[in-house]
């Protein structure tokens, strides 16, 4: 369960988040929609601890972040192992192969042995349909392939939930489908996910949709009611 309560995040005089509140139930796909500048991405980044906020709380699987109190490094690390993240710009590590990218979390964050991490990574690459690209560097992969590797990388640390920050916005239209297919597959498997998306079709497959405008969650409910 991820519960965001009264989140306020200011950037100078601008209130990026203005008392945003929402919950995401485990095993469900939660979609976050709304116009640009509404604070969707910032909210996700706050949940992952990449941004600090002035007030409110974030509770995620037993870990709590409180506004105005800078979290400690170990607390942040624990939270992030529970809540993974996939970025709009993929951010694959360019000096590593696709396989090494996926292995990097288990090896360097969880301290798992390399052999075991490699097994996991190979399995996850196969799951996102890229078993044959294990040895390729990010520079030699298409945008859609890179994002699928990024999803496998996030999955590799076995998080309780994964946050998707506009995962298809940086992709050419013909590559959007392959990424969404992987995400639908994950959702079908009961992976807890919060997805910021402009793709109305995809949002329709969510269990709950939250609509954000001007830093507030203005509407929550099933897709038919919100969209």
């Amino acid at each position: 369960m991820i519960r965001v309560t009264d989140l306020v995040k200011c950037h100078g005089p601008a209130r990026i988040l203005d008392g945003a509140t929402l919950t995401a139930a485990p095993g469900q796909l939660t979609a976050l929609v709304g116009p640009s500048g509404g604070g969707k991405s910032t909210l996700l980044r706050c949940v992952n601890g990449l941004e600090q906020f002035q007030s409110g709380t974030v509770e995620a699987f037993g870990h709590t972040l409180t506004g105005g109190q800078p979290p400690t490094q170990p607390a942040l690390q624990k939270l992030r192992r529970a809540v993974g993240m996939v970025f709009q710009q993929f951010h694959l590590f360019p000096h590593l192969t696709a396989l090494e990218n996926v292995m990097s979390g288990p090896v360097h964050a969880l301290g798992k042995p390399k052999a075991e991490a490699e097994q996991t990574a190979k399995r996850l690459l196969a799951r996102v349909g890229l078993a044959d690209k294990a040895g390729a560097r990010p520079a030699n992969l298409s945008g859609g392939q890179q994002q699928r590797v990024a999803i496998a990388r996030a999955l590799a640390v076995e998080p309780s939930a994964i946050l998707f920050d506009e995962p298809t916005s940086a992709l050419d239209p013909q590559m959007v489908g392959e990424v969404l297919a992987v995400m639908r597959d994950l959702a079908a498997d009961g992976q807890t996910m919060i997805v910021v998306s402009h793709d109305v079709d995809f949002a329709r497959s969510a269990a709950v949709v939250h609509k954000m405008v001007a830093g507030k969650v203005v509407q929550s409910g099933p897709p038919d009611a919100v969209l």
Binding site: R80, M85, F87
Partner: peptide
């Protein structure tokens, strides 16, 4: 090195020093 590299590594749960050593420095 772009900030996104650090964020992606942090989001995986790596410690700050591991991020520097494994992700930023090699690049």
């Amino acid at each position: 090195i772009p900030k996104g590299q650090t964020e992606a590594a942090l989001a995986l749960g790596m410690s700050k020093w591991t991020v520097i050593r494994r992700v930023v420095l090699p690049q």
